[in-house]
């Protein structure tokens, strides 16, 4: 790349991780608030718990990475303190973002704490008390966390979309693309972790057993959701191109870098579209259809089982890479 990149891997990884954490937290909160009851109760609780534990971690790691890259950790506090009232009245998207991150980290951590099995961990009266308190706090925390997580996912796109001088970023479709990708990667992370957990046939975790019919049914619905998200993402990518194509200016020019012959074309079509979207869609779609049409058990080899979510996570990272780098190697046309 001949061009000097001002935002590089730390930013790319940060955008990816922030989206992933926000997506996982949103999925967890939604399951807590509107999740199924009855025989699926335990399964839903497990998904909610995984999402809650995954949620804050990537965001904290990603933010740490960014702050480390700035080189002066405590200077980053200037985002909040340098000119409080001025910034409150004239916030930049990065200000919004830093407040979101702060609130996200606090609330997501509190929310995750409500999922810790205090009773088995501490036992005795203290365990009981904390358990009861967790039960009471979980739903209100989820009510706060879901909008916060979605705001976080949207902000990662608005951060880029807010600058007119980067035509590839400055599109009204980017927030949708990043939000769908965030939820899809968050869900994939949850699915991946629980596939690790239930690797062995006959595995039992708490009240969830792999051999339960409820396990397969939930798995089936989760995977269907994932495939739907992939389709949604493909549609949004289509909209992204259409917007650029219909715009007779720099956006049209900038998007050429993603189209065949452009500098980022291979990374985009192979990394994002083929590996990150089409491959998992086909693999999972195949098993879904086999169950839906032929009535087979929803059961598949472990390697394929974990490779699909890994491919989606990889695709999410590549999407951020392509957008962040592609935006910087293109610019306004004319002078």
């Amino acid at each position: 790349m001949e061009q000097h990149l001002m935002w590089n891997w730390p930013m790319i990884v940060y955008l990816f991780l922030a989206g992933l954490g926000a997506g996982a937290l949103a999925v967890s909160g939604i399951v807590v608030l509107w999740g199924p009851a009855g025989e699926f109760r335990h399964r839903a609780a497990l998904i909610a718990r995984l999402g809650a534990f995954i949620g804050p971690l990537p965001v904290i790691i990603g933010t740490g990475l960014l702050i480390y890259e700035l080189g002066r950790p405590f200077r980053a506090l200037n985002l909040f303190t340098s000119n409080f009232w001025f910034l409150a009245l004239n916030p930049s998207p990065m200000n919004w973002g830093s407040w979101f991150i702060l609130l996200f980290c606090v609330f997501a951590t509190v929310y995750a704490l409500t999922f810790i099995p205090w009773r088995t961990l501490l036992g005795g009266e203290r365990g009981e008390r904390l358990e009861a308190r967790s039960e009471r706090w979980r739903a209100p925390m989820a009510t706060i966390c879901v909008p916060l997580a979605i705001a976080m996912a949207i902000y990662t796109a608005i951060l880029l979309a807010a600058v007119p001088a980067r035509p590839l970023w400055h599109t009204p479709v980017l927030w949708l693309l990043f939000t769908v990708s965030a939820i899809s990667t968050g869900l994939s992370a949850i699915i991946l972790v629980q596939r690790f957990m239930f690797r062995k046939p006959g595995a039992v975790r708490g009240a969830v057993r792999r051999e339960d019919p409820a396990f397969r049914v939930t798995e089936y619905y989760l995977v269907s959701m994932k495939v739907l998200l992939i389709i949604a993402e493909l549609v949004v990518i289509g909209l992204f191109f259409m917007f650029a194509h219909m715009t007779i200016n720099s956006a049209n020019f900038a998007v050429q870098t993603l189209l065949p012959g452009g500098e980022m074309a291979t990374t985009f079509w192979v990394g994002v579209i083929l590996v990150g979207l089409l491959m998992p869609a086909f693999i999972e779609g195949f098993y879904l259809l086999r169950t839906a049409v032929l009535g087979h058990e929803f059961e598949w080899p472990y390697v394929i089982n974990v490779s699909a979510p890994i491919a989606i996570l990889f695709g999410g990272l590549m999407l951020r890479y392509v957008i962040v780098v592609g935006g910087q190697i293109t610019g306004p046309i004319g002078i």
């Binding site: 001002m6 935002w7 700035l70 080189g71 600058v163 910087q328």
Partner: peptide, 11 residues
């Protein structure tokens, strides 16, 4: 005051 985030450079 600057933190070197380079947001301005993109804008």
């Amino acid at each position: 005051v600057c933190i070197g985030c380079l947001y301005c450079a993109h804008a």
